[in-house]
Design a protein around this nucleic acid. Structure first.
Lengths: 224, 224
DNA sequence: TAGATTGTTAATCGATTAACAATC
DNA sequence: TAGATTGTTAATCGATTAACAATC
């Protein structure tokens, strides 16, 4: 019963969210010609603690060397392998509106092992068009293509009103994970994953942080 | 020194991310004619524990009543007040490309107290156009308008290559918080907040969850 | 009243940090 | 060798869950 809660891979969720940040950061440093880097340096730049950085990196790499730190190329390679190759997935995008098109153009996905193969939309005007080299196809073709191409992941970027119906279609077609960019909560069977991309939650956090910042400044001068 | 780590508002970050979800869920139930709801019901539908739901809701509302649960209207009102009115903010959007336009059309923001007043872009072809009733203005007008309208929050949706330069401009203009939708890490002074909207991190989590799901099915049949 | 449900205080769990040994 | 830095084991911290009293 608790299997879903335990983490067989061993990498905890919080660590997982930081790994892409390390990778993005390290690539910048690499471009700047840095060939090795210490946990302290990374931690300073990313506002983390060196201990946390070492623990995180230890889950994906053994490249770290006392005294010299982490050799840049090896560490980046290990992170890419972990985040990219190991998780390489093809996905279908459903909904080629503004949000959908923005997601097609989000280059970073490719870096992290996600390839959007095609988009689907009900709007006939879009059929046959391409965005970032990805074709927009009629939704009717979705079930068959999901089965034939064995695509397990779908990105849901349809209007809210169509969210549940589209999710149902995806599940029937055999999709096993839905990345939900609508603001609707969607219901799926137990054996299908849903990840709700919740911008409102991010906004709530940012708003509160900003309010707290202003509070502190009001109370205690500039830096209490 | 540790002030930034303590939370004067008392609401912890994890709770904060769930509050918008409660609100979205409750609005659906309200539409369905439900007038009161228990923590157990909410927890079941949202895959949380009732205790956690009660603790979360206790931070924003005293409307809960033994035996009857939470009166729908009062609870929704309390959540809206907390998430919306208390945090009501005006924001400028910088970058009116595909992502920027998608964000302008993200209706949910308004519900959570965020109003995008206008967008700014370097592309002259966009100047004067409107998306969802929001004008696109030349970036040159940004510093003056930030000061005059006392806008503290900016949403950064420019191309990655322009991320840091635009962030610098925003900071100089007096913006105090930047919601960063680029994939670049941006550097700002200590008295400015940056929240990096990291889709790659979400993707990493979803990928791992899906991989774990497949692992479980392979090992132990359908439901180990 | 009896039953259902909230809200609070204590216990547990997971993630971060501290301390320090290992090692290049 | 001495110094710097990693990686691991133990301690702490924060968030979730459990237990239960309060109460409608």
């Amino acid at each position: 019963m608790e299997i879903a809660r335990t983490n067989p891979g061993g990498t905890n969720t919080a660590t997982l969210t930081r790994l892409p940040k390390y990778l993005a950061y390290l690539k910048i440093k690499q471009k700047q010609g840095v060939t090795a880097i210490s946990s302290t340096r990374i931690a300073n730049d990313l506002r983390l603690t060196p201990i946390l950085v070492r623990k995180d990196l230890a889950t994906v790499s053994q490249a770290g060397r006392p005294k010299t730190g982490y050799p840049m190329d090896a560490l980046i390679g290990d992170l890419e392998r972990f985040l990219g190759c190991e998780n390489a997935r093809d996905a279908f995008l459903v909904g080629a509106g503004r949000l959908g098109r923005a997601l097609m153009g989000y280059g970073q996905f490719q870096d992290y092992g996600l390839t959007i193969l095609a988009a689907f939309d009900t709007d006939e005007a879009l059929h046959g068009r391409e965005f970032d080299g990805k074709p927009v196809l009629p939704v009717e073709k979705l079930p068959d293509l999901v089965r034939r191409m064995q695509v397990h992941l779908a990105i849901l970027a349809v209007p809210d009103s169509a969210a549940q119906a589209t999710a149902d279609l995806l599940v029937q077609s055999g999709v096993r994970a839905i990345w939900n960019f609508t603001t609707e909560t969607i219901a799926v069977p137990d054996n299908v994953l849903v990840q709700h991309e919740n911008l409102a939650a991010s906004l709530a956090i940012l708003s509160k942080r900003l309010a707290a910042l202003f509070d502190r400044e009001k109370q205690g001068g500039t830096q209490p």
